[in-house]
């Protein structure tokens, strides 16, 4: 299986999972005695719509005239990092303020969607340029910066988790599993995006 087919398989899998979760969520809402709140319904439909719109554009846009104007620029690269930082801060804030609500209302997926769409845009550019290699749309400094940021993220998240673990155990705090997951997810996103932007712009 060549790389393009692999990416398409991954994308189809993501869409399928999103659809299953969406349909299952709607079904669950119907079955439960408590009705699904309007806020949850709006968030679910928005997430589902954005995922499907992103997937549809992946196949439709390369066949249109817009495709010619779509390029991987410095602005897109920077915008992706800035989006990641905003999503990371928003996600961490929401996880701390409403740890239960963020899962129940699917706010977690909603806050991650902008970053997902930015990466979908990268994928779209790769499809338009008919390439399987990320090195064909990014230059060597950008790839080096992403690698540095990945190493920084690994170390940063480990450090943050250790600090948080000691604080929570020493104070006898009983944090829910969902909080740990959200904390890991959004702190990784925040550190990775901030580090990528820092390394890219440092000089």
């Amino acid at each position: 299986m060549d790389k393009r087919k692999k990416y398409q398989s991954v994308l189809i899998s993501v869409i399928a999972v999103a659809l299953i979760i969406g349909i299952a969520g709607l079904q669950k809402g119907k079955e439960e005695s408590q009705p699904v709140s309007s806020a949850e319904r709006i968030i679910k439909f928005t997430v589902l719509f954005l995922v499907l719109a992103g997937a549809a554009s992946y196949w439709i846009i390369p066949k249109t005239k817009i495709a010619k104007s779509m390029k991987m620029t410095e602005t897109v690269f920077t915008a992706t990092s800035v989006t990641g930082i905003i999503c990371g801060i928003a996600g961490l804030g929401a996880a701390v303020l409403w740890p239960q609500k963020i899962i129940e209302l699917h706010l977690f997926e909603f806050l991650f969607i902008p970053f997902f769409l930015m990466y979908a845009y990268w994928g779209l550019i790769m499809k338009i340029q008919r390439t399987d290699e990320i090195s064909d749309i990014l230059d060597e400094k950008q790839i080096a910066n992403i690698k540095e940021a990945a190493a920084m993220t690994f170390a940063g998240v480990m450090g943050l988790f250790l600090i948080f673990f000691f604080i929570s155990t020493s104070n006898g705090l009983k944090l829910q599993g969902s909080f740990w997951f959200l904390f890991y997810f959004f702190s990784s996103l925040l550190i990775f995006s901030a580090a990528t932007l820092y390394y890219f712009k440092r000089d």
Partner: peptide, 22 residues
């Protein structure tokens, strides 16, 4: 050359060492 302006800037400043290819 097909790189970003930031890459050229970093090479000029001596902050980034380009590959043999570049």
């Amino acid at each position: 050359i097909g790189v970003t302006r930031q890459t050229i800037h970093s090479i000029e400043k001596g902050k980034f060492i380009p590959s043999t290819l570049l």
